[in-house]
Design a protein around this nucleic acid. Structure first.
Length: 272
DNA sequence: AGTGCGACCCGAACGC
DNA sequence: TGCGTTCGGGTCGCAC
């Protein structure tokens, strides 16, 4: 699933449902999801409680008493809240049971998601967190910052936007949308962008992501974020998944190409 | 260092 | 209907 808008939606939804409830049981059904020690995972979680849920880039960060549980949903990870009495469904890999008779269940069809338990003081030293670039919605993200990150890079700008070390929070869908809104061709060499073009990416990126967050993210195919929340940003997509359809600005046909192995949709006429 | 590609997984969509 | 193929809202690791 996750791009930043979806992860933020999950965070906001879960915060209302699971904070400060005592954890009484943990079932690990598919253990490769957990990158840290599996025994410790259970031991630390049981009798603990979630005090808060934070986010850094696409990482969800569940705050326990002395630890953080880092969770990355990758392509299709979802969280559901269910009655503990309900049978474990297919693709539910981690089940965290609370004292009030409800479960937080991690569901991941493709098993790409990852979880990792760390001590609180280790957060800033944790590689996954530490290497994240400034967030697309961070007030401190400036065109000079982006210009410097892209400097000398020969890779296509689309690929550079997907690398979370440059800017964090954009994924394949929104990268296409941001480049379209900024009138920049996805194949342009990242290092060739002007400061003004960097400013456009930031301005349009913020606008798009904030709107997507307000709409609960994007639902493509049957993806619904946790708890059956369905995003509605897909109604606003201008180029992504629109191959063969007319460009909403000039009417030319939207093209689909591969960039860095990922499907990329754009308008040749509007994006030079 | 930079780039390209397979791997991780599974199901849905697509082509015949 | 059935069957094989392709592809994907992400990221890492390995080979050049």
């Amino acid at each position: 699933m996750p791009e930043i808008a979806e992860v933020e939606t999950v965070r906001n939804t879960l915060k209302k449902r699971i904070l400060n409830k005592k954890i009484i049981d943990v079932k690990i059904i598919y253990d490769k999801i957990i990158e840290s020690d599996k025994k410790e995972f259970k031991n630390i979680l049981i009798n603990n409680e979630f005090e808060d849920i934070l986010r850094r880039g696409k990482w969800l960060i569940f705050a326990l008493k002395e630890h953080y549980l880092l969770s990355h949903l990758r392509m299709e990870g979802k969280y559901f809240i269910k009655d503990s009495k309900e049978e474990i469904a297919k693709h539910e890999h981690i089940v965290i049971s609370f004292a009030d008779g409800t479960d937080l269940r991690y569901h991941d069809t493709r098993k790409f998601g990852r979880m990792k338990l760390i001590k609180k003081e280790a957060l800033e030293k944790t590689e996954e967190i530490q290497k994240q670039g400034k967030e697309i919605i961070d007030e401190e993200l400036t065109s000079s910052y982006l210009l410097e990150k892209l400097q000398d890079k020969k890779m296509p700008i689309k690929e550079a936007l997907l690398n979370q070390e440059n800017i964090s929070g954009l994924g394949n869908i929104y990268a296409d949308e941001v480049l379209f809104a900024s009138a920049i061709n996805p194949l342009r060499k990242a290092g060739s962008l002007s400061k003004d073009e960097c400013a456009r990416i930031i301005k349009e990126g913020k606008k798009i992501i904030l709107k997507a967050i307000s709409l609960g993210g994007t639902t493509i195919r049957s993806y619904t974020s946790s708890l059956g929340v369905t995003g509605h940003y897909q109604d606003y997509l201008k180029v992504h998944k629109k191959e063969g359809m007319p460009c909403p600005i000039c009417g030319n046909v939207i093209k689909r190409i591969k960039v860095g192995g990922r499907s990329t949709y754009f308008c040749e006429h509007c994006q030079k």
